[in-house]
Amino acid sequence: MWRLSLLLAGALRMAAQEVGRAPEAAEVRQYGLTIAPDGKGLPAGKGTPAQGRELFSAKCARCHGEKAQGDIGPPLVGGQGTLATKKPLKTVGSFWPYAPTVWDYVHRAMPFDKAGTLAPDEVYSLVAYVLFLNGIVPENATMDAKSLAKVRMPNRDGFIPDPRPDVKRK
C-alpha cells in the first residue's frame, strides 16, 4: 500500500511539473494550415482560371483592380523582366518564388477585410486565375495540390542568402 501511494505521489509530482497539455489532433487542425513551398500541407480541392475570374471580380477586384493591375491593393500581374531595372515591379508573376506560397497567402490573409473566409476550391481557382494572368499556367489548367506544387515560378531562383556585413569602409 505505501508503495502504491509513493508511486501516486510521484505521478502527482510529475503532473505538477508538467506545464502545458497535449493537444487533440482535431485541435491542431483547428489552428489551420501551414503550407511548405513544395506544396506539403496543401489541402484537397481544385479550381480553374475561369472559375477564378468570376471570384476575383467579386472578391478581389475592389482592391487589386479588375485586371489585377493594382489599386488600393498591390498589383498582382506584370513586372517580369523588371527586377534588375530602375523601376522594378514586384508581383506574384515577377517576384514570388513558389506557387504554393501564393495559395497559402490568399487562404490565410485574403480578402483583406474577410481573411479566412475562402474555401480551398475558391483559393485554387483564384490562384489559377492569377497565375494565368501572369502567363504562368494555361487557361485550361486545373490547379490542385499536385499541379500547383509542380508550377515553376519565373523568379524561382531569384533569392539569395544574406551576405552581410557587405559594406566596406572607404
Partner: peptide
C-alpha cells in the same frame, strides 16, 4: 532587391 535583380532573403 539587389541591382542584379536577385533578392536577399532572411536578412534578419
Amino acid at each position: 532587391l539587389m541591382p542584379d535583380g536577385k533578392a536577399r532573403v532572411f536578412t534578419l
